[in-house]
């Protein structure tokens, strides 16, 4: 090292740090990416809301692209997300609702009041399936492809922006 260059070392280290800080301003530190991306959607078999004799399993959707939306009637952010889901349902997107640790009566009431965007709603009363999917905050949405592989996870409500920039382009490709 040349004698003068070595005095530039602190500045150089600092500039690298600043670069990292600038890059990380764009990330949300609370968002934890799922390790399940590009892995098969965990299997389960759960009763259908209001029809406990019927059940649903992810295998039933084999060959179709679908969304698994984790929600609950007690969750405020789900209410914010709801209009977007309705819009998605109108455009023909297949969505399965996973009613997470909820009261079934209240869940049904919520859907009949605000509209039901789901093709089918299943009940995860004790949150076991949610645990297998790594749910840590409701709402969360998984995009699952024809082969039953999870391709994307939306953490938190689906915003118009996320729908436009992430989910719709992905659905088109699948």
């Amino acid at each position: 090292m040349k004698p003068v260059l070595k005095y530039l070392l602190p500045l150089a280290i600092f500039l690298v740090l600043v670069g990292f800080f600038a890059a990380s301003l764009k990330h949300d530190p609370r968002e934890v990416p799922s390790p399940l991306i590009d892995k098969p959607a965990p299997a389960f078999r759960l009763p259908v809301l209001n029809a406990p004799d019927k059940t649903f399993a992810p295998e039933d959707m084999r060959g179709r692209v679908w969304l698994l939306n984790v929600w609950a009637s007690w969750c405020g952010a789900c209410r914010d997300e709801h209009p977007v889901l309705m819009e998605m349902a109108r455009s023909g997107i297949v969505m399965v609702g996973l009613d997470y640790k909820d009261d079934e009566a209240q869940a049904s009431a919520f859907l009949s009041r605000s509209g039901n965007p789901y093709t089918i709603v299943v009940v995860d009363a004790d949150g076991r399936v949610g645990m297998d999917y790594g749910v840590y905050g409701v709402p969360e949405t998984y995009v699952i492809d024809r082969a039953g592989i999870i391709r994307y996870k939306q953490i938190g409500p689906i915003t118009q922006k996320a729908l436009r920039e992430k989910i719709l382009p992905l659905l088109q490709r699948l």
């Binding site: 003068v4 602190p10 500045l11 800080f21």
Partner: peptide, 28 residues
């Protein structure tokens, strides 16, 4: 608020970057 974060980062960059540049110039 990322906006604020950016402002403080610029401030940090100015104060510390300036000081370390001065250090590099005067140290020899």
């Amino acid at each position: 608020d990322p906006q604020r974060g950016l402002f403080i980062l610029v401030l940090l960059g100015g104060v510390v970057g300036g000081a370390l540049t001065l250090f590099a110039l005067r140290a020899p």
